[in-house]
Design a binder for these strands. Sequence first.
DNA 1: CGAGACTTTGACCGTAGTCAATTTATGTGG
DNA 2: CCACATAAATTGACTACGGTCAAAGTCTCG
Lengths: 252, 252
Amino acid sequence: MGQLDYIASRSAAPAGASCVAPADSDDVQRVRAFWRRVERYPAGVQMGVESGPGRGRRLVIVSGWACELRILPDGRRQIFGFLLPGDVVDTEVTRDLGARGVMTLTRLQAVEAEGEAADPATPAERAAAASRREERLYDHMVRMGRLTARERVLHLLLELCERLEAAGLVRDESFRIPLTQELFADTLGLSVVHINRTLKALREEGSITLKAGSVTLHNRARLAVACCYEPPRPVAGLGAGREGVRRRTAEI
Amino acid sequence: MGQLDYIASRSAAPAGASCVAPADSDDVQRVRAFWRRVERYPAGVQMGVESGPGRGRRLVIVSGWACELRILPDGRRQIFGFLLPGDVVDTEVTRDLGARGVMTLTRLQAVEAEGEAADPATPAERAAAASRREERLYDHMVRMGRLTARERVLHLLLELCERLEAAGLVRDESFRIPLTQELFADTLGLSVVHINRTLKALREEGSITLKAGSVTLHNRARLAVACCYEPPRPVAGLGAGREGVRRRTAEI
DNA sequence: CGAGACTTTGACCGTAGTCAATTTATGTGG
DNA sequence: CCACATAAATTGACTACGGTCAAAGTCTCG
């Protein structure tokens, strides 16, 4: 992911900065090579359905959002999670149909991840990424199974903020969020109307600012407590005991 | 998993069958060797917390149930899924604390999976198992996010039936289920009281029989339709297109 | 038989869903 | 730059699914 980092830091440079470096420096060559490999997708399309030789690829998102989802036969829709810049879209698993689809939510730029050998990510890094991804699935289940509407929204926003921050896409606790309320609803297992009211309440109580596709979270620490959000553990860390185990596991 | 199969078919033999094979046959030796390796755990304990050299092991469940779960700071509990005979408990991931714990629900027997080399499961089989596991996580999200209480219960029962059937633990569409209503509730994101009423309704409408820790599903095909349950796809299978993609992905 | 865990039931409440109409973007073509 | 078309956001009125509280009934096990 060295190249992505490189590009990211580049584009993060102040817009007005003049670039007067020699046109054939190493950097310039690398950037050009990078952008030549970038693929573009429009918003609202399903990824990874080309069943040709292209399937089974691992794409790294450079910019834009996508989501993993399933649509039930009767039209109900469930979104499992979002794919943000820096995340890997595994087209292999994707074509696994009924189970899970991947859909772009915005225009998207992505580059194919190099093969195992050339991949700058170490096996340990890959494993860590997979582990974090799985943990996000668990978080999402907790959200839908045990949190109230208010908590669900906050919990999701905190996760997104955290991840976008890692991608350098958060400035002053605020970030762009290309989600309609319908997408929120299908993600959190709520109705659009209720999402609307919940957002309204959060705005009115001053917890968040949300307009024109940008969110600001006011006092993340407080919000995290309010919705049982725990930031992803650093790296290793040994497990602590947990209470609350019921004694008898009787029959039904 | 050849050994497990072997044992399973053994214990499935009619209870009254007399065993008069020579006491030192190959089979007998193998069975004895197998049972010598079996570890036993009581019900209601957290697995994989021993942080000694034992952690990071992969145990295959021989008999009994366990579940993966998380407990929130305020006591709310969410169960992510169940581990049944034949499933692998990955103690490695387990000690990853706050994220996910594994708790036995009954007395449990398990054997340590052999290392990569000696493991009779091919890499492809392992991958398939991992993929099926992930798919179950998606199923569970759909359950909690988009299904009604009635549907959630049916959907879960169908999944368990399917899996237990694969393990040879279903007879005449019925199987033993060591879950309290509280466990059901914490799995499906509902309250105990509501689980109770939902089960009552399902019983009264004749969809299921449920008593003394055994369930019978009446007309699985019909029930599957009633709750949008799709049995796990065979193996490969290419993805079909899916409709319902919204046009514009506007801002919030 | 008694204790504790589990199940069941009733009464009542509240969060979230549904339906439908209105308002506000966000485009798009002229 | 404006008019129109369409997607998205809002809002109100009403409903209902599911939660909470509390009490009583069952089942198991020591």
